[in-house]
């Protein structure tokens, strides 16, 4: 069985996105209420989401007829990077939770330490880099620009 390629799937997602705006847009009204002149609140979103749907369908058609872009290639070295990318994303979520519940600067220091670790940097570099990055962010943004990172 042929594998489902990316373009029809992305086209489908574009169509869904368009529909999410198109259907409620009709409910906002295409013309103004009462005797007011001009179009209603739904006029513009219905046009733009309608065109989004059309182009989404075009992408699906192109993908099925002419073939799709190979989103993730077949290079084994690059495919292995998927795991690293997933870890990077997961670590980012953990960082957001640390920021939300504990402290931003602790989160950013741990994030930097962890990223440098998975990117294979030496411990010496990792420690110095994370310390300098955290100190710079603290000094410039919290102390100099008075940006409050506490949520």
């Amino acid at each position: 069985m042929q594998k489902l390629k990316g373009d029809p799937l992305m086209g489908f997602l574009v169509v869904i996105f368009g529909l999410l705006f198109f259907v409620p847009g009709l409910g906002y009204g295409l013309s103004s209420p009462g005797n007011l002149p001009g179009p209603g609140a739904g006029f513009f979103p219905v046009i733009t989401s309608g065109l989004t749907i059309c182009f989404g369908l075009w992408i699906i058609y192109d993908g099925l007829k002419k073939g799709s872009v190979d989103y993730f290639g077949s290079d084994p070295e690059q495919r292995a990077n998927f795991k690293i990318l997933a870890i990077v994303c997961l670590a980012f979520v953990v960082f957001l939770l640390i920021w939300l519940f504990i402290n931003f600067f602790l989160g950013i220091a741990l994030l930097s330490l962890f990223y440098n670790f998975i990117f294979g940097r030496t411990w010496k570099f990792n420690l110095i880099f994370s310390l300098v990055l955290t100190a710079l962010l603290y000094g410039v943004f919290e102390k100099l620009l008075y940006i409050q990172f506490a949520l």
Partner: peptide, 8 residues
Amino acid sequence: AVGFAGLT
């Protein structure tokens, strides 16, 4: 497609 998605 993405341009009209942005407009939407």
